[in-house]
Design a protein around this nucleic acid. Structure first.
Lengths: 245, 245
DNA sequence: TGCCTTTAACTGGCCTGACCAATAAGCTGA
DNA sequence: TCAGCTTATTGGTCAGGCCAGTTAAAGGCA
């Protein structure tokens, strides 16, 4: 109730779409009609329809009307509350297969690109305050080599979710700095398998890499829990000391 | 250029966010200032900011201002133009592994649920005009059994994309009606592997199922191309007849 | 002097009413 | 019957205004 009017109206419209009142392809009432029906002004109606348009639910055609593009059913969750472990596990499952698919049809140019990225990853790891852009590019390049847009976007999405989970990013950073050397070797192994055009080897190398990431992530989680427990013990101890002074 | 003004403005604002001009947490200029700066009216500015808000880029706080929530980098593609083949291939890669993971930890309750869904799928296939809701529920139930939110959401997302590609849905429908019987057997095989808690068998059964879907999809594609070619020949022939008639 | 309250200058939320441009349906005339 | 014109309808945008929530500066009190 305390929502802004246009949000309230947008929600109502989504509900009506979901109820099947307006099938795909049908036209919504004119803005002036909606304004009258819901007791709001036309600018408010426009704001609500724009919200629906951005979500890809409707299409607004000048001089014609606003039409239903798709129903809000099955709308995928935003997925901002996935744990780092789950994300990496999903990548472990998915990117291994993607690597195998990529190995079957990768071009020389793509291999050269990935080779350069592995070198860049080595450089990144040297730098203590370095980013993981090359690492990102590495995994995306493999996704691109699958020649499958759905695979590519899924890899991209999983990485994206990781970057939008503060906890995940923190743990990853922690885990990454812990073992610099192996990470490069793991990437090199993937590259070598791709160069051999060996799907099974590529799958194995990627599984090995991501299971290592998973392991170091679990290690970081443990370490963090231990640190938190120690801090708690310390706090209790000092409180006890003060009390018993 | 031919974009609507608010879309144009929204794009410009996104560009400025991407350029780092406004870091996360900072405040954008007031609506009245933006209107003046870009030579548009305030309602237009409001429409643009609402578009950004729906995309999760900014947060609008009444009486305070609009603040940057996240940068538009790494924004995942909307993915509305993925072909049916690519989607199914991605599912083939991903859901097989998900089934293996699920087999390792599925509960008796979940097995019973999936069992009921397989029966429901059989019923759906009897009905010529039936939906594929049970099929959908089947795959989601396996995703849930992985105890991994990221895996679940990815499966959900791939299915969702399928339903939003008109071409994909059509081909699927075509492919589905072509081979009713095998589909039930394939689902039953997956169920049996899950019941045995056998990851390798579950992976194999799911791979078998989705590769069958992939095959029938290719068949439908061929058939459609043939039909289109025939229609084209027919059209040319009749035109020739009229011309020479 | 320093803290707290008050107040006034913002900011977004929403409205009225209007004009323009693109569309599409209806009309008209051939 | 159909092409071309007319006109009602629809979204696109603007101007200007009032209200309500927020914030920080100004002022009062201790």
């Amino acid at each position: 109730m305390s929502e802004r009017l246009y949000q309230d109206l947008a929600r109502k419209l989504v509900d009506e779409l979901a109820s099947g009142q307006y099938p795909v392809g049908s036209r919504l009432p004119a803005e002036r009609e909606l304004a009258l029906a819901y007791g709001v002004s036309r600018p408010t109606v426009r704001e609500a329809t724009i919200a629906l348009e951005v979500r890809g639910l409707v299409e607004v055609r000048l001089g014609s009307g606003t039409y239903v593009v798709r129903l809000p059913d099955h709308e995928p969750a935003t997925g901002f509350d996935v744990s780092a472990f789950e994300l990496t596990e999903a990548r472990f499952l998915f990117e291994s297969e993607a690597a195998a698919l990529a190995a079957a049809q990768i071009t020389d140019e793509e291999i050269a690109e990935i080779e350069a990225l592995v070198a860049e990853i080595a450089r990144e790891n040297q730098d203590p305050g370095g980013t993981d852009k090359a690492d990102h590019a590495f995994h995306l390049a493999i996704g691109r080599a699958t020649r499958n847009q759905a695979v590519y976007e899924t890899i991209e999405r999983l990485w994206y979710l990781r970057h939008n989970s503060p906890e995940a990013a923190l743990l990853h950073e922690k885990a990454r700095t812990a073992n610099v050397k192996p990470v490069v070797d793991e990437h090199t192994a993937v590259l070598e398998a791709l160069r051999q055009r060996d799907p099974a080897a590529a799958r194995a190398a990627m599984r090995n890499h991501l299971s290592a990431v998973l392991e170091s992530l679990l290690f970081a989680t443990e370490e963090r829990a231990l640190k938190a427990a120690r801090a708690e013990v310390q706090a209790k101890r000092s409180r006890y000391m003060r009390a018993t002074g």
